[in-house]
Design a protein around this nucleic acid. Sequence first.
DNA 1: TTGTATGCGTTATCAT
DNA 2: ATGATAACGCATACAA
Lengths: 355, 355
Amino acid sequence: METAGGRKRFRGTGLSGESPVKLSDVAALAGVSAATASRALNTPGKVSDAMRDKVRAAAATLGYVPDAAARALASRRSRTIGAVVPTLDNPIFAAGVQGLETRLEALGYALVVASSDYRAEKELRQTTTLVERGVEGLMFVGIAHRPSLYRLLETRGIPYVSTWSFDPSDPHPGIGFDNFEAASRMTDYLLGLGHRRFAMIAGITRDNDRAAARLAGVRHVLAARGIVLESRNVIETPYGVTEGRDAFHTLLGGRPDGRPTAVICGNDLQAFGALFEAAAMGLDVPGALSITGFDDSVMSGHIPPGLTTMHVPTAEMGQLAADYLVNCIEGRPVRAKTRVEVRLVVRGSSGPAPR
Amino acid sequence: METAGGRKRFRGTGLSGESPVKLSDVAALAGVSAATASRALNTPGKVSDAMRDKVRAAAATLGYVPDAAARALASRRSRTIGAVVPTLDNPIFAAGVQGLETRLEALGYALVVASSDYRAEKELRQTTTLVERGVEGLMFVGIAHRPSLYRLLETRGIPYVSTWSFDPSDPHPGIGFDNFEAASRMTDYLLGLGHRRFAMIAGITRDNDRAAARLAGVRHVLAARGIVLESRNVIETPYGVTEGRDAFHTLLGGRPDGRPTAVICGNDLQAFGALFEAAAMGLDVPGALSITGFDDSVMSGHIPPGLTTMHVPTAEMGQLAADYLVNCIEGRPVRAKTRVEVRLVVRGSSGPAPR
DNA sequence: TTGTATGCGTTATCAT
DNA sequence: ATGATAACGCATACAA
């Protein structure tokens, strides 16, 4: 099966040759068997010191780079984990992925990312391709996933974690916080300030349990006080500054009386938009009304008058996700559900209700 | 070589069994050979329609998921490309990665990301691990890389592109713009407004050609007009709002006379910081001085009084990088160097120099 | 069009 | 401690 004339060339893609130096070459140069070379490189403890050095030297001089595919096939380990996030365009998720990557890197794992565009269906597809690609663990955002996603993972015994949401009643592993409770806390805070007329600029709740829980949390607390969040005072719109701005305008425009005195936003971007539009409309914040955000992104503390928001430890969740997954993979004990701390950060955008 | 009693169990990591359904199982169920099953799944055109359907049905009922490692080993194709960026914490890079991922997804490739933390040494390490992991192409940010990085890639014939920088004299493939020229243009604009006293808040120039080129561009244009950018008027600091704010304070603080009338920032985050600090210091922008940014991030158009900045098509660069790499990999013709358009966006933060 | 046989580079199992 | 050798699951050149 030898091509006439010698070695077969690898030119599968018409590109110049990839490094043909394989483990057996290293072994040959070192004058040992491939098995020993493999051991010397991967489990140095299992060979003599002289052996180890000899093989390492040979590998170095040859510029040997192991083939991950072959290694994965033989060992059934890819040392790769996947993350499926709504989008990296939201800095909040980007930060989480950064935290995940940093930790994984330290643990010797690579990270492959895919985006779902906030759609459960696409999330499922992306997950499938990641699984095909042999990831050993997966991180998701939120807990609202297609049932078949869980089936796929559980069938194959692939560890996974949801982040951003913590729900004791959810049977799946997760690292996050209770969005409902956090939103409730925010609402309580505003009620304590004397606000009674509320509006909410929420994220799109479909396929997004965080957005839904935040809206529900606000509704719940208000209802408990006998305050109904009328539908005309709730706008669902994508997370974004422009969207927040438009929503705020719609909410407050042409309604001199009965205006809300507190506008709760589903995330900081929307809140920034609300803040900007309020300024454009000549509405004093927090004098005429209070505006709050969610996530505590970098700008929150800087934008005048400072955005009252809920701090979320995004990078930490990513890091914890990395630890959780790697521990699972490597057979160490893990806690299936971890709750992270969120913290209400009061800044200038909120204040006592105008009387 | 059959373990007594039957099938061997895969329990390499102590986890529950991964899907034992392999291509040969599908083939068996369909009553064909593995080769045909492979063809039916991967190159449907090469088998009869009946065959195709039969195999697909079998694969579906068995829940077959191909093993990427085996496939990669046999085909010498991983259908994975890598990206090494300074950090995803900078939304600008996150957006680029998002553009890359979206396009790759459409092209049937997966993306593995790694971060360099703005350090060339780490970038090299990360690249090496990505290469070991079998990526077929690589995207980088900037053109200042370790020489051995290029050697590694060229030795193995792995396609790569740099983004964010365009330098005709650089012999490597790239998609980006001329940071020097862009910074020059910004400076020209300010000169045209009558400014003569300049300061710059630059990014850390070490290992960062973009930051260095932007600073150099400003210096060059000013020098051509006989204006020297004194060192006390230049601060190198990490990209960030707080850093920009601090730098601005240092630059403008305790110097009532001879103050710069134009502060050019290396990126938008720094410019936001400058803007906020100016407000805090009671300095009117653009009345007392002009402030400019770079990148045109989402907030630029919203933050009062609007940030004059250089628009950079981040997502587009990511998308073009995807196209470039995939075309290389699949043997299609490519243009090694692509220049993208940047555009000066004039907003409220800049205006005529105070007399 | 379909089947057969081999090889991909590494790890792991068994001897020695 | 080291060596021989069989998987690992799939793709592909070649034969039919």
